[in-house]
Simulated scan of single mutants.
Amino acid sequence: MRAVVRDSYGTADVLRVAEVPKPTPKAGEVLVQVEAAGLDRGAWHLMTGKPYLLRLVFGVRRPKNPVLGRELAGRVVALGEGVTKFAEGDEVFGIGEGAFAQYAVARADKLALKPAGLGFAEAAVVGISGTTALQALRDAGKVQAGQKVLITGASGGVGTFAVQLAKAFGAEVTGTASTPKLALVQKLGADHVLDYTHEDFADGTRQFDLIIDMAGTPTIKRLRRALTATGTAVIAGGEGGDALSGGTDRQLRAQLLSLFVRQRLTGLLAKENAADLKVLAELIDAGKVLPSIDSVVPLEGVPQAIVDLVDGLVSGKIAVDVS
């Protein structure tokens, strides 16, 4: 089968499209014929092997799985031992291993039936980004109807879902984005938009009950300045920081400080599960959430797509057409 692979960690130059063996599902897994895959920021981390702590799970010297990609949508073609919730031919979406390929294995508890109203490309970009946004708002942020919510990085892969989900939960939503991307954030339903190249959300003129920080760059001091006295900040974006731990140090410092102040400062470790995929599918079927796709690229376009994503040239998500 054709797949996007790399033999070592590095820049996009290490990626190539090659023929590799079709994987075999183990107990609790299914084999999916991938129609489309989603490109999330995690693909860059797994390509570069940074932060280095990731390598303890995915391979210390070189990747355990040479095939890149985790978000996917496609059809079930084989079932591993013990899998009863799916049948061959089911159209599914969710999270697997080696999604930038014609076939990929996925744990059954990380898949759900594809929403009928979505094409494969749209469904493919939901798995990681959608569940991250949902858990940031509902679980970590404990969002309530009527709250004033700020989404930083609102035009990004997770941010575009977070804006729509916050509106679905009944919040008054403000989103930050760069000038060219403000129109998208407004289209997604944000009540207010801030151009971060000209406006500072922490200038003291506004305060929020809840901040979902997907931008990954605001200091804890700035986040606190923009919160109400008892507001909550969820630091979901983890970019920056050192090569060992990435941006997780900012989350840890925020949680430590939260022990001594009235404001609630917390991080997010998203959990991949089918239950939240089903919640997202229901919201999609109800018309409250719609994946925002910047472009669709073939397997050969993945290296450049990753470069564009890291350079900030992407609005929403990039889908990979595998079929």
Rank of each mutant, 00 (worst) to 15 (best):
E199G: 05
Q207G: 12
L227E: 05
V193N: 03
R224M: 14
A202K: 05
L227D: 12
G247N: 10
E199I: 00
G240H: 05
Q251S: 10
I220L: 05
P218N: 02
Q207A: 10
G216M: 08
I211Q: 09
G204C: 09
F201M: 03
T219F: 00
T230P: 11
G189P: 04
R253K: 14
L244K: 12
Y196S: 07
K181M: 04
D200E: 14
P218K: 00
A243F: 10
G240S: 03
V185R: 08
H192Y: 11
E199P: 03
A215Y: 02
D213C: 01
R253Q: 14
L210N: 09
Q186K: 15
Q186N: 10
P218D: 02
A190D: 05
H198P: 11
K181G: 08
G216Q: 01
D209E: 14
K181A: 10
L194N: 09
D191N: 14
A215I: 07
I211D: 05
E199L: 06
T219C: 03
T232C: 08
G237D: 02
T232I: 08
A190L: 02
L194A: 06
A243I: 03
L182H: 09
L252P: 06
A226M: 02
A183P: 03
H198Q: 15
A183F: 05
V234G: 08
Q251H: 13
T230W: 12
G247T: 02
A229V: 07
S178A: 09
A202V: 07
A183E: 15
L223N: 13
G247I: 00
S245Q: 14
L194I: 12
R206S: 11
V185N: 05
R250P: 00
R222M: 12
T228E: 03
E239L: 11
E199H: 01
D249K: 12
L194K: 05
Q207H: 15
G246L: 02
M214I: 13
F201E: 04
A226R: 09
Q186H: 08
D213P: 01
H192D: 09
L184T: 14
R253I: 00
V234H: 10
R225K: 15
G247W: 01
A226K: 10
L194G: 08
R222Y: 07
T230E: 14
L188R: 06
P218V: 03
L210C: 02
L210F: 03
T219Y: 04
L223M: 09
P180Y: 01
L182N: 02
K181S: 11
P218M: 04
V185E: 04
Q186P: 08
L182D: 04
I220Y: 04
A215R: 09
I235K: 10
P180D: 06
Q186A: 06
P180T: 06
V234N: 11
Q251K: 09
K181N: 12
K221H: 13
T197A: 10
V193R: 03
A233R: 04
L210Y: 05
R250V: 09
T232L: 11
